[in-house]
Design a binder for these strands. Structure first.
Length: 478
RNA sequence: GGCGCCUUCGCCAAGUGGUAAGGCAGAGGUCUGCAAAAUCUCCAUCUCCGGUUCGAAUCCGGAAGGCGCCUCCA
């Protein structure tokens, strides 16, 4: 039984889809005014796991993720760069896809853009006016927060408290300072669309209400996004959608925790803005994915590049073990058999993810089974049969297909990781390999003092070597 | 001023009433020419103060520190 923490109820709720096993999920995508950063990566990776898990549970999932490709920031940025809005948003959408593909994220079933849904947006605004919840002033349309009884139910606020707070600015067109704009009359040189209220453009929240209900219906199962969107974005989405349709909008609200960089929120002004590209210059995408899932999705992550090294090391450990497992399992001719270790792992895996997607608990289970493998694989005496080994492969394959790591060919991926390390640490590969060859000469001559001296020299270059019957391997230490 | 979140071993991180998962680092052992890798053993009473309870890291009240939102934000 799957339990999901629901922001609306503020507790873990048992997940019950609206229509049999059909599930509709909408996740707020990027406002594409800039390149994706690691905060976006965190959110996408967290939601990717949710999607894979729901599908594993055999739900027939429709996953919708939008692009917001018109808003103040986009207009401003396009003007600064003297490019058209379309050029800017297309560039950034492309960058988003590059990042998302590198990280191995499942593509949504539908990826609507705000600019392609203006008619839906206008229709929703009209409906809100018809329902006397929204009002028009000078070509702009506002949502009247005190005309919608449930305003504040997601974020746990009430209108009076918010007005009492000093930070709401008073705008003369608004009936209530908390009212927000649904349709904005456009200034010259701004993108605009014809509407019943003159030419204008959508407000900041309406696009998600319009697009989600268009593809998933007035009432659907899951709506996701970053914590920061709870207020006002998601609060307003509820107000708009429910105000327009009169139906309950979303059953489960899922929000991922924030990612800070060295204790502070990322921002251009603090100069701690890390794009996905920046991170992937230094660490393999799978390392980044592993890192993000090592923390529960609702727990805040304080990001530091150096922390990725831990993840890199652990992934390498898994792949080293997997390489051995595969080699021994290959010899099996029979069908996979699951022993108690395999069963225990799978049970723990499933119950952890069913408990609000608890990935850190999955990691503990992974370490348990991998330790067991390392205990058992090297010794011919206690090594299980090939069929049992194939049973391990089978359960690990299930897990890795959800986790999105440890799911590649070990030798190839270790080489990829090594290449990223070489680039990151500025290591000279030829130099290393020459030194290793020299050392092996000395070892053959049993001149261990000379051999050890070379090894020390390599160690200074952060190179750690490992002698095996098949030859000498080297890895890069941290 | 309002709303919400967080504080668990040196570091990362699970745990939401039943007596502290896991990883990294560290110490010691096995293995190894020596190493490395792997493995084994050891390594916390949960920011503080009160309360509820047979029993609390987990619930309640208070304090301290940190963070987020209330303006665009994953």
């Amino acid at each position: 039984m799957l339990k999901i923490y629901n922001t609306l109820t503020q507790k873990k709720d048992e997940f019950k889809p609206l229509n049999g096993n059909k599930v509709g999920m909408y996740a707020c995508g990027m406002t594409v005014y800039d390149k994706p950063h690691i905060g976006h990566a965190r959110k996408e990776i967290a939601m990717d796991l949710v999607i894979r898990w729901l599908r594993y549970l055999d739900y027939d999932l429709t996953y919708v993720r939008n692009f917001t490709d018109v808003d103040d920031k986009i207009i401003q940025r396009a003007n600064e760069r003297e490019m058209s809005i379309t050029e800017l948003t297309e560039d950034n959408i492309e960058a988003f896809y590059r990042a998302v593909d590198a990280l191995g994220l499942v593509r949504p079933d539908v990826e609507p853009k705000a600019t392609e849904h203006i008619p839906h947006i206008i229709a929703m605004v009209e409906k809100l006016i018809e329902n006397s919840i929204a009002y028009e002033v000078n070509g702009s349309v506002y949502f009247g927060v005190d005309k919608f009884k449930g305003y504040g139910k997601l974020s746990g606020r009430n209108i009076d408290d918010m007005i009492a707070g000093s930070r709401v600015s008073v705008e003369e067109d608004k009936q209530n300072p908390l009212d927000f704009v649904l349709w904005k009359t456009s200034k010259p040189n701004e993108p605009s669309w014809e509407s019943p209220w003159g030419s204008g453009r959508p407000g900041w929240h309406i696009e998600c209400s319009a697009m989600s209900t268009t593809y998933l219906g007035n009432n659907f199962d899951i709506h996701a996004g970053g914590r920061d969107l709870i207020f006002p974005h998601h609060e307003n989405e509820i107000a708009q959608a429910e105000g327009a349709t009169g139906e309950k909008f979303v059953n489960y609200w899922v929000h991922n925790g924030f990612l800070t960089v060295e204790g502070e929120k990322m921002s251009k002004s603090l100069n701690n803005f890390i794009t996905v590209d920046d991170a992937l210059q230094k660490y393999h995408p799978e390392v980044l994915r592993y890192f993000m899932l090592a923390t529960h999705y609702r727990t805040p992550i304080d990001f530091a590049m150096s922390r990725l090294s831990d993840s890199e090391r652990q992934l390498t450990y898994f792949y080293d073990t997997l390489e051995q497992l595969n080699a021994f399992a290959e010899k099996a001719t029979g069908l996979p058999e699951r022993d108690e270790h395999a069963e225990k792992f799978l049970n723990e895996f499933e119950s952890s993810l069913n408990d609000d997607f608890n990935t850190p608990r999955v990691y503990a289970a992974l370490f348990a089974i991998f330790t067991h493998l390392n205990n058992v694989l090297p010794s011919k005496k206690i090594r299980p049969s090939g069929e049992v080994l194939r049973g391990y492969q089978e359960v690990l394959k299930i897990a890795s297909s959800i986790l999105g790591f440890i799911d590649k060919e070990p030798v190839a991926i270790k080489e990829e990781i090594k290449n990223v390390q070489i680039k990151r640490l500025g290591v000279n590969r030829t130099e290393i390999e020459t030194l290793i060859a020299e050392r092996n000469e000395k070892r053959k001559e049993r001149d261990f003092a000379a051999a050890d001296a070379i090894r020390d020299k390599l160690l200074e270059l952060k190179i750690v070597i490992k002698d095996t019957p098949q030859g000498t391997n080297w890895t890069i230490g941290q």
